[in-house]
Simulated scan of single mutants.
Amino acid sequence: MRSTATRPRLPIVLALALTAVSVAATSATSASTAETPVDFACQAKPPIVGPQAFAIPAGVTATAPDAAAAGSTFPVSLATAPITVPGGVNGYTVRSISNLKLSMPIPANAVLTGKSLSGGSGLGSGVPSLTTSGSTLLLTVPGPIGGGQTFTLPVVHLDLTAGEKGTTVSTQLAGSSYSNPGLTFNASVPIFGFPVNVPTACYPSPNPVLSSTNVS
């Protein structure tokens, strides 16, 4: 006797299979958000007077899933808190800063598949950009940004594909010293009545992990 059971139609089977693949490709737990204080130790090097040390208080809010399946793609975003340009450093007036560069390592144990910027305010007339150089991401803000002005950097959005199971994908800023900075910019400072372009190097001190995603 011929069975009266009906077989699933082929298009339905394919649709279910594609749905399963799509879910596996994007498998990640719900994103969590953490705000982390990140203060920068900075050193300006005028061409006439000696190096000038100062600090810039800041912070980063990172949004990333707590866990993601190996081979899945997940988003991470890094948003800096508003930063105020010093109006003066050790008695020297800061007129403006320009060519600001903030660097961060591309997270280990993952492949970077996409990157973009959004938002930002008080950044001057230049257009910010996000580029890669080797294993480093570089956020560049041409400026100029006036001394004493508060600005907010664009939010950095990353698309990452998780690596091997049992590893961790972490985000962090770059920089460990004045000679290995994670933040640089040029400051316009009048010295003896003349405007001088002063290169400035900063690094996060301390440099905490901003987000951490376990690969399962």
Rank of each mutant, 00 (worst) to 15 (best):
K101F: 02
K101L: 10
K101A: 13
K101G: 07
L102D: 01
L102I: 03
L102Y: 00
L102M: 06
S103P: 01
S103M: 07
S103Y: 00
S103K: 05
S103I: 01
S103Q: 08
S103T: 15
M104V: 00
M104S: 14
P105Q: 09
P105C: 02
P105M: 03
I106W: 04
I106D: 00
I106M: 09
I106L: 07
I106C: 06
I106R: 09
P107Q: 05
P107R: 03
P107A: 04
P107F: 02
A108P: 07
A108C: 10
A108T: 15
A108I: 10
N109I: 06
N109V: 07
N109H: 15
N109E: 12
N109K: 14
A110T: 06
A110P: 08
A110Y: 06
A110K: 07
A110L: 08
V111L: 13
V111P: 02
V111F: 13
L112W: 03
L112S: 03
L112Q: 06
L112N: 03
L112R: 06
L112H: 08
L112E: 03
T113V: 14
T113C: 04
T113D: 11
T113F: 00
G114E: 07
G114A: 09
G114I: 05
G114L: 02
K115Q: 14
K115N: 05
K115G: 01
K115L: 12
K115I: 09
K115S: 11
K115T: 10
K115R: 15
K115A: 11
S116A: 13
S116L: 05
S116Y: 02
S116Q: 08
L117Y: 05
L117A: 04
S118W: 02
S118E: 10
S118L: 05
S118Q: 13
G119Q: 11
G119A: 10
G119C: 11
G119T: 13
G119M: 10
G120T: 13
G120Y: 13
G120K: 10
G120D: 13
S121P: 08
S121N: 15
S121V: 08
S121D: 14
G122P: 11
G122Q: 14
G122N: 13
G122T: 10
G122C: 12
G122A: 12
G122D: 14
G122L: 10
G122M: 12
L123D: 08
L123Y: 12
L123R: 09
L123F: 09
L123V: 09
G124I: 04
G124K: 06
G124N: 02
G124F: 09
S125I: 09
S125G: 15
S125D: 12
S125A: 14
S125L: 11
G126A: 07
G126E: 02
G126F: 01
G126M: 02
V127L: 13
V127D: 08
V127K: 15
V127T: 15
P128S: 09
P128F: 00
P128W: 06
P128A: 11
S129M: 04
S129N: 06
L130I: 00
L130R: 01
L130H: 02
L130A: 01
L130V: 01
T131M: 00
T131I: 08
T131D: 10
T131G: 00
T131K: 01
